[in-house]
Design a protein around this nucleic acid. Sequence first.
DNA 1: TTCACTTTGTAAACACTGTTTACCTTTTGT
DNA 2: ACAAAAGGTAAACAGTGTTTACAAAGTGAA
Lengths: 207, 207
Amino acid sequence: MSTQKRRERDKEKMRRRILDAAKQLFVKDGFDNVSLRRIASAIEYSPAAIYRYFKNKREILSVLRDEGFELYLQRQAERMREIPDPLERLKESGKGYIRFAMTNPGYFRLMFCTDCEQVDLEGKWAESSMRSYTHFRSNVEECLALGSFGDIDADTVVFSLWSGVHGLAHLINTGQVAALSGGLDLDPLLDRILWFCMRPGDKEHEK
Amino acid sequence: MSTQKRRERDKEKMRRRILDAAKQLFVKDGFDNVSLRRIASAIEYSPAAIYRYFKNKREILSVLRDEGFELYLQRQAERMREIPDPLERLKESGKGYIRFAMTNPGYFRLMFCTDCEQVDLEGKWAESSMRSYTHFRSNVEECLALGSFGDIDADTVVFSLWSGVHGLAHLINTGQVAALSGGLDLDPLLDRILWFCMRPGDKEHEK
DNA sequence: TTCACTTTGTAAACACTGTTTACCTTTTGT
DNA sequence: ACAAAAGGTAAACAGTGTTTACAAAGTGAA
């Protein structure tokens, strides 16, 4: 009867325990520096037990990544609802991306910096990240409709801004900005960078 | 007498053999997926032999990274010498960066995507990458002197452009652009992106 | 209750990893 | 000729992800 449902709940509970333990460790020490034995001992089970719930270590990463995107997307969406102006909203979402990378460096790396192969189990690059991308893209298209960037196609703007924000986050994350900016106050610099990336373009396409 | 010098040359030759084998493997399969035993068997020595020439695996990476930067810098410098206009030169160096990332994905990751900790042996983030940065920065400053980006500080432009180009390279490298651009012709898109990133800014600082 | 069957957990093994140790041979400078 | 140093290695150490064989417990039906 309901035995089966209870067992399914139990199974889900166990998966959660594994995911929580793994997330904590991955975020702290990085995917490659966490062994299954450490995850196992964190939840006080044997290493082999984990394989009853996940087919391998990569699948754990994959699920965590998806959950992370879901959470990130939700928080982002909340904040963005309060900003009616598309361009202002675009800037703010860029700031959110950077803020996320700085406050959760481990999680950021998990979500945005692991290559497709490493996480991709069934040949489809997680669709949660796809949804994040779609949100961003429609925001850009709003701006374009208002003429914020002049006469230019969406793809160019989308990938330019995405690259800019992502690259900045990545450079901060790997410690390269800190190594080269030389004790500069980072926060106002970030604002200026975002402002620069999203500065208005020419109304006329040259040449 | 000259015995000592010959021995030093021999030692250097052996280091080269190790570096060459390691580079080939690292570039093909990634740092973490290459074992010392594979490097060792590639040069037909025992694994332990390598430790007579490098203190550990990370040091091999560190040296390769440095050499890579040296080479990259040299090639870049050659090309750039032929372009007198600073802004045009800046765009071209961005293209060089992307081209490098696309034609040598493994090497790109080795050089630009390994975090400081992983390669940093003596607490100093390799100075060869620093020189690359200095080159780029002075190019930006030339452009600023000509008013190419309006009235704005160097740091903002430097980090904006660096982020943009680096981020794009990284997104291409991890397969995310391919996954999302959906069969678009990449090459002309790249041109448009670079053109967009380096579009002229306002002459007047708003607000 | 008894019985087959599935589920859940584990110890042990497998084939790896980076690195260190002890030891041997060869080369060196005196 | 001889002590010292250098170059190379097999074996071991402690670790990795994963699989296997097996035991215990829970389940549903006779």
